[in-house]
């Protein structure tokens, strides 16, 4: 029982460190995915858009990117804190 608890604790510590080792990449990944969504679904946001066939064909597989884009659209002027959370300023 106790052993399990210690193991769980160590696992959590490992996860903390794993997050530490990937948080900035993850942030950049999301930015790139958002860009991908903006480009493919640009029609909706008023960007230059690719042929509609490309968009339609991709949409079914782009849930993650659609979510990201919608989140970013809601807080488009509100990214500062997210960046701050990842970057160590002080």
């Amino acid at each position: 029982m106790n052993f399990d608890k210690i193991r769980r604790f160590l696992q959590l510590l490992e996860e903390v460190q794993k997050n530490k080792a990937t948080d900035i990449i993850e942030f950049e990944l999301k930015e790139t995915e958002n860009l991908f969504a903006l480009i493919t679904l640009g029609e909706m946001v008023g960007y230059a858009n690719p042929p509609v066939s490309i968009t339609l064909s991709l949409i079914p597989y782009m849930e993650r990117e659609v979510i990201l884009m919608t989140n970013r659209a809601v807080d488009s002027n509100d990214k500062l804190s997210d960046i701050a959370s990842i970057m160590e300023v002080e």
Partner: peptide
Amino acid sequence: NDGVDYIPAHRLVLFGHHFASIAGAGP
């Protein structure tokens, strides 16, 4: 919860992340 930005994290994991972000040379 959308599996992308809004995901519940274990308190210890979140603490680790939060503390690492605020602790630097300043203090």
